[in-house]
Design a protein around this nucleic acid. Structure first.
Lengths: 188, 188
DNA sequence: GTTAGACAGTTCTCCGATAACTGTCCACTC
DNA sequence: GAGTGGACAGTTATCGGAGAACTGTCTAAC
């Protein structure tokens, strides 16, 4: 099936591109074509141009990153525990995936290959977090939900850019902040 | 008095250095000496070396930045209004002072002239904010105070790095988050 | 649909030469 | 005595030109 082959090609190209980008190289179109074993023109046909390929790579990486976070959120029944798990997942995944870290911190090494900044990721993370909160707690005011989601996203990125405290500590703090913004916590 | 002259010299050197740095140039020691009308050796005697001069400049700029914020905090009797004023002051001052913005965002243009990152500023801002809270509300738990202060500092820096919303909106949001972390707010 | 090759225009890279800067001496002056 | 001007070795930035590589597109061929 042509569709299947096309998706496989895209995936393999992005795999190789990500691998090279993570290694610190800014992969060129000829090198990418050579490594994948395909002609340069096929790359241009599939991704349009270099920026298109970069955008696809960024889209896939951020999507996976956010998927992991959302899965963590959905995996815990308790709201505080859910946020602890999600923040922990974000920190862990960012530590493991240099591409995500580079995009979020606006680092010079990898992201020069791509155009995106941290803006779109933070916006997407905020939307997903707000969607999760509305899903599990439809009773909460929307303004509080949006404020909590945006605050959590910014705090996590802040801790990636400027580490402070252990992952456990950071996760607990962010979860506490979210719950208190929502007024959904019994205080100690 | 020698002390007075020495302070004047330091101030004038830092003024010129800041002016040049803001203009995008990385001022050299000879150029700085020439502009101030002093010998190159006087600069080395006064600041030790180039890094010492840069450190002095960073110290002065961040000190002024934090002073303005703390003054705003102290100028309002109501806690929410105090934080609104402080965040507003931070955003305004950062927009007006490219040196502070460059230090906080880790931008490549100006900060290449200096060594500091955003870490020390965030730490100092957190300390001052916590001190303010302890001063005006000694009854609050210290853990909450520290969490609120750190959260506010990170949120403000986050909004400098990645602008989102009007200054009024951001200031109101940060103030709300701080009050809710402290549990010192009647909810709407 | 894919490929190899060619193409103009741009960008990267290397290299040596030159200039400028850093940090530290010292003799000298007011 | 603090400040100056000059000199110094060692390092680092700057410039220009040559060469290579890359980008994006087109065409003929498979």
């Amino acid at each position: 099936m042509a569709r299947r082959a096309r998706d496989d090609l895209r995936a393999e190209v992005l795999d190789v591109a990500e691998q090279l980008a993570v290694a610190g190289d800014r992969p060129s179109m000829p090198e990418l074509a050579r490594r994948v074993g395909v002609s340069r023109q096929t790359l241009y046909s599939e991704f349009g141009d270099r920026d298109g390929l970069a955008a696809a790579l960024v889209l896939r990486a951020t999507g996976r990153f956010l998927d992991r976070i959302e899965t963590a959120l959905d995996g815990e029944p308790d709201l505080h525990a859910a946020w602890v798990a999600a923040v922990h997942a974000a920190l862990t995944e960012a530590a493991r995936n240099p591409l995500v870290t580079a995009l979020l911190t606006g680092e010079a090494a990898v992201p020069s290959a791509f155009g995106s900044g941290s803006g779109p990721i933070v916006a997407a993370a905020t939307d997903r977090a707000a969607g999760f909160l509305r899903r599990v707690r439809p009773d909460l005011p929307d303004a509080d939900v949006r404020l909590a989601a945006a605050t959590a996203s910014r705090l996590v990125v802040s801790h990636l850019v400027l580490p402070g405290g252990t992952p456990d500590r950071v996760a607990g703090d962010v979860a506490t902040v979210v719950l208190r913004i929502l007024g959904a916590e019994q205080r100690g």
